[in-house]
């Protein structure tokens, strides 16, 4: 009984922290300028008036992330007692490369990647919502034609 309650408490906490993590992630994107497609494109435009800001976003995120993931790799369970799900695949295959090349093309066309698309939805931007819906359709098309996981 006590154990059951503790489990439920942890599940509720886990959901609250998931929401909180998403919120902090969103704040980071907004503060960094990643939620502004024009700024993202200015970073990707090496040959034009180059705005190097987003390089620092990656740098800052990775500097902190390295510590977080190092600490996580030493644990068998998360602080809330949940399993730690780290990707196990080590193979660099065609799917990885082709998919990433494609993703970069779409990103370079408009300056929006998946996480900022959700932040744009939250700002009520119609164009942001159009992109988000198309992105979800793109993901659904992948699910339909993906044969590897079936």
């Amino acid at each position: 009984m006590v154990k059951q309650t503790k489990k439920n408490t942890n599940q509720t906490l886990a959901l609250a922290f998931a929401l909180f993590s998403g919120l902090v992630f969103g704040f980071g994107l907004i503060l960094a300028g990643m939620a502004n497609p024009a700024k993202v494109l200015a970073f990707l435009d090496l040959a034009g008036q180059w705005d190097p800001s987003l390089g620092l976003v990656m740098g800052g995120a990775i500097a902190v992330g390295i510590i977080g993931f190092k600490l996580a790799s030493r644990r068998s369970k998360s602080i809330l007692g949940l399993p730690i799900n780290l990707p196990t695949s080590r193979t660099i295959d065609n799917r990885l490369i082709l998919g990433s090349l494609l993703f970069g093309i779409g990103w370079g066309l408009v300056g929006i990647c998946p996480a900022p698309a959700f932040v744009l939805l939250g700002t009520g931007s119609i164009k942001g919502i159009v992109f988000l819906l198309a992105m979800l359709v793109g993901m659904a098309i992948f699910e339909v034609f993906d044969t590897k996981n079936k």
Partner: peptide, 18 residues
């Protein structure tokens, strides 16, 4: 600073939610 927030979020998520 935005990058650091993103790093904190990713760290919290793996450490708390796994």
């Amino acid at each position: 600073a935005g990058g650091v927030l993103i790093g904190i979020s990713a760290s919290l998520f793996i450490l708390l939610n796994g």
